[in-house]
């Protein structure tokens, strides 16, 4: 009898908790949906081939585009990848495979702190390190700032993914007389490869939208990129500049730029998810 009451009560609480979870999920998704909807509805009308391929026009002239900013962003991401990926993947490999307890603990703590450092601080740091010493803003400085930003994510993801490879595979390889370095490169990193690549793509997606660290480093430019040591335009900075301007057609372009950026980031993150899903199936 008492039991029946308890069951009713339990079911009611369970139902209520379930409802709250659903509600919270919906509330959490609303901003995302609104952003997507708003960016698409505002950005799509101004998006055309010219926008993707042309240089910005001076104030007052209509037309023009953000072609240089798109190329600049790709360039910055490329530099960040070249600088940051080897460092991040190797550091993650060290953390996972060469377990010197004290040093690993320190490195892991530092990586976690670094990933919490506001991106503008990293911008200021690279400004002091590269811009002041080279005496001008440059694509290189911007790329390095983004590389530092992605370093902890890549290192920690690599570490996590390598740790997921069961020890039985390490033992299987070592027991065949395969040297340790070869075991790590050809068995462990290969087995964890799908996960590491997913982590890398997510890290790239994250830095693609960073604005603050570029303000002090890559600055901006109204021409096509001319070299690693020259300032370079980037989508986030261009969007920022256009959005705070008083001109209506610049606002339009800022929306279009936002749409391009969102699409780029979505492609990277959705692509990584699809890739990882396929990889996992092939492991099973």
């Amino acid at each position: 009898m008492n039991n029946g009451f308890n069951r009713r009560r339990r079911n009611a609480i369970s139902g209520l908790a379930y409802l709250l979870c659903v509600l919270a999920t919906i509330i959490a998704l609303i901003p995302l949906m609104l952003i997507l909807f708003y960016v698409i509805s505002q950005g799509a009308p101004a998006l055309n081939l010219d926008f993707l391929t042309q240089l910005p026009k001076p104030v007052g002239e209509t037309g023009g585009g953000m072609g240089n900013a798109i190329v600049g962003s790709l360039m910055l991401i490329g530099i960040a990848a070249v600088v940051g990926l080897p460092l991040g993947v190797l550091a993650g490999t060290y953390l996972a495979e060469f377990r010197s307890p004290r040093l690993s603990w320190t490195v892991r703590l530092l990586a976690d702190i670094l990933s919490g450092v506001p991106s503008i601080i990293i911008g200021v740091f690279v400004y002091t390190l590269l811009v002041l010493t080279m005496k001008h803003f440059s694509a290189l400085a911007g790329g390095v700032a983004l590389a530092i930003l992605m370093l902890p994510t890549v290192a920690r993801t690599t570490e996590e993914m390598l740790r997921m490879v069961p020890d039985t595979l390490r033992e299987a390889s070592l027991a065949l007389g395969i040297p340790r370095w070869r075991t790590i490169v050809s068995i462990i990193i290969k087995t964890a490869g799908g996960g590491i690549i997913t982590g890398i793509m997510l890290a790239l997606a994250r830095i693609a939208g960073e604005t603050a660290p570029l303000l002090f480093t890559a600055l901006s430019s109204r021409t096509w990129p001319t070299g690693l040591d020259k300032p370079v335009a980037s989508l986030p900075v261009q969007i920022y500049t256009y959005a705070i301007s008083p001109y209506e057609d610049w606002h339009q372009q800022a929306w279009a730029g936002s749409l391009v950026l969102v699409i780029m980031v979505l492609l990277l993150s959705v692509g990584s998810k699809l890739y990882f899903g396929r990889k996992m199936r092939s492991v099973r």
């Binding site: 039985t168 290969k190 087995t191 092939s282």
Partner: peptide, 16 residues
Amino acid sequence: RRGIGMVFQKPNPFPL
């Protein structure tokens, strides 16, 4: 280990 091989309790082929 090249001269003295080993087979483990649970089969552990390389999955990929």
